[in-house]
Amino acid sequence: EEWMVEKALMVRTGLGARQIESYRQGAWIEGVHFKRVSPSGESTLRGTTWYNYPEINKFIR
């Protein structure tokens, strides 16, 4: 699984929702560690946020 939603990321990493938000707003790079995608497939600020687990795992190492 490369891309996953927040709940799956929480299960895989043990991070809480606030921790994920903090990383997203600070250290993680949009387009690398996470992306927002609307149902139409376009990038957007209001779409579902998807997280790239392999890239996040590399960051944590």
Rank of each mutant, 00 (worst) to 15 (best):
S22T: 12
T13G: 02
F34E: 01
I60S: 03
M10Q: 08
P39Q: 11
E42G: 11
S22I: 14
I29S: 06
L45P: 10
Q25F: 07
Q19D: 11
E55K: 05
I20N: 01
R24C: 13
N52M: 02
L45I: 11
G16L: 13
G31H: 05
E1R: 06
A17Y: 08
F59W: 15
G47W: 13
L45H: 12
R24H: 05
S22D: 12
R12Y: 09
T48W: 06
E42R: 03
W3G: 00
L15N: 01
V11M: 14
Q25L: 13
P39Y: 10
I20A: 01
K58N: 09
M4H: 02
Y23P: 00
V5G: 14
R18T: 11
E42Y: 06
E2F: 08
K58D: 07
G26T: 15
L15W: 08
P54Y: 12
G31Y: 04
T44H: 11
S40P: 13
V11D: 14
G47C: 12
W28M: 02
R24Y: 04
I20C: 02
R46G: 15
I60C: 06
M10R: 07
E30A: 05
W3M: 01
V32D: 02
K7C: 12
Q25M: 13
G31A: 03
I56V: 08
I20Y: 02
R12Q: 07
P54W: 09
S40M: 12
E30I: 05
Y51L: 01
L45T: 12
Q19E: 14
S22F: 15
I56R: 00
W28A: 00
I20P: 01
G14L: 04
N57P: 00
R18C: 13
G31W: 06
E55V: 05
P54N: 10
Y23G: 03
L9G: 00
R46W: 13
L15V: 02
G31V: 04
R61T: 14
I60T: 04
G26F: 13
V37W: 07
M10N: 03
S43T: 11
K58Q: 07
R24E: 09
W50N: 03
K35C: 08
L45E: 14
A17G: 06
I56L: 02
E2M: 09
G31T: 04
V37S: 09
W3L: 00
T49M: 14
N57Q: 15
Q25Y: 08
E21S: 08
T48Q: 12
L9K: 00
L15H: 01
A17E: 09
R46N: 15
I56C: 04
E42V: 09
A27W: 09
R12C: 10
Y51M: 01
R36V: 15
Q19K: 06
W50A: 04
I56A: 01
L15R: 00
Y23H: 05
W28F: 03
I60W: 04
F34N: 00
W3A: 01
I60K: 03
V37I: 12
E21I: 07
V5K: 12
E2Y: 08
G16T: 15
T48C: 08
G14D: 04
S22Y: 15
M10H: 04
Y23K: 02
V5A: 10
M4G: 02
R36A: 08
L45F: 08
N57C: 15
T44D: 15
R18M: 11
T13L: 07
S22N: 13
R61V: 14
E42H: 10
A17F: 08
G14V: 02
I56T: 01
L9N: 01
S43H: 09
I60R: 03
R12L: 14
I56E: 01
N52T: 02
V32R: 05
E55T: 05
I29P: 00
Y51D: 00
R12V: 11
M4F: 05
T13E: 02
R12K: 12
G41D: 10
G14P: 02
A17R: 13
L15G: 00
F59N: 03
G31M: 04
I60G: 02
S40K: 08
Y23L: 10
V37K: 06
E30N: 05
Y23M: 08
M10D: 02
G31L: 04
E55G: 03
T13M: 06
V11L: 14
N52Q: 02
T13C: 06
A27E: 10
E55R: 05
I56Q: 00
V37R: 06
I56N: 00
E21V: 07
E6H: 06
W50G: 01
E6D: 06
R61A: 13
V5E: 15
K35S: 07
I60M: 13
F59P: 01
K7Y: 13
G14K: 05
E21M: 08
Y51N: 00
F34V: 02
N52G: 01
E6I: 14
K35T: 08
M4C: 08
G41C: 08
I20G: 00
I60P: 02
K58V: 06
R12D: 02
H33A: 01
K58S: 07
R46M: 14
F34Y: 13
T49D: 05
P39F: 10
H33F: 03
N52F: 06
I56W: 00
M10Y: 04
A8F: 07
P39I: 13
V32H: 05
G41L: 08
I29W: 03
Y53A: 04
E21L: 09
V11C: 14
R12E: 05
E2W: 09
G47A: 13
N57W: 13
L9W: 02
H33Q: 03
W28H: 00
F59G: 03
S38G: 12
S43G: 12
I60L: 15
V11I: 13
I29G: 03
K7V: 10
T48G: 07
R24G: 03
V11E: 15
F34L: 02
R46A: 15
S38N: 12
W50R: 04
W28L: 02
L15I: 05
T44L: 10
V5I: 10
E55H: 04
R24Q: 08
Q19C: 08
T13I: 05
K7R: 10
A27S: 10
R12M: 13
K7F: 10
T48Y: 07
Q25W: 07
R46Y: 14
S38H: 12
R46T: 15
S40W: 10
R12A: 14
G31S: 04
G41V: 08
E2D: 11
R12N: 06
E21A: 12
Y51K: 00
R18K: 14
Q19T: 06
V32I: 13
G26D: 12
L45A: 11
A8E: 15
V37Y: 09
N52R: 02
R36I: 15
L15D: 01
I29H: 05
T48A: 09
T49H: 10
L9Y: 02
G16H: 11
S43A: 10
E2A: 07
G26W: 12
K58P: 02
Y23T: 01
G31F: 05
S38C: 12
H33K: 00
V37D: 12
E21F: 07
Y23F: 11
S38T: 11
R61S: 13
M4S: 02
R61Y: 10
V5N: 15
V32M: 05
L45C: 11
W3K: 00
S38Q: 12
H33R: 01
P39C: 10
T49L: 15
R24N: 03
P39T: 13
I29Q: 08
K35Y: 06
E21P: 01
G47D: 14
G41W: 07
R46P: 15
E1P: 09
W28S: 00
E6T: 06
R12H: 09
R18G: 14
E21H: 09
S43N: 12
W50V: 13
S43Y: 05
A17Q: 11
E42T: 10
R36N: 14
K7Q: 12
T44F: 10
K35P: 01
E6F: 10
E2V: 13
R46L: 14
E6W: 05
Y51S: 00
E2I: 13
A8P: 04
R12F: 08
F59M: 06
S43F: 06
T44R: 05
I60N: 03
G14Q: 05
R46V: 14
N52E: 01
V11G: 07
K7N: 09
G47L: 11
E30P: 05
S38R: 09
N52C: 06
I20Q: 01
E2H: 09
K58Y: 07
S22V: 11
R24K: 13
L45D: 15
E1L: 07
Y23S: 02
S43M: 09
F59K: 03
L9D: 00
E30L: 06
M10G: 04
Y51H: 00
T13Q: 02
I20H: 01
P54L: 09
P54D: 11
E6S: 06
Y51A: 00
Y53T: 02
I56M: 01
R36E: 13
S40Q: 11
S40T: 12
L9S: 00
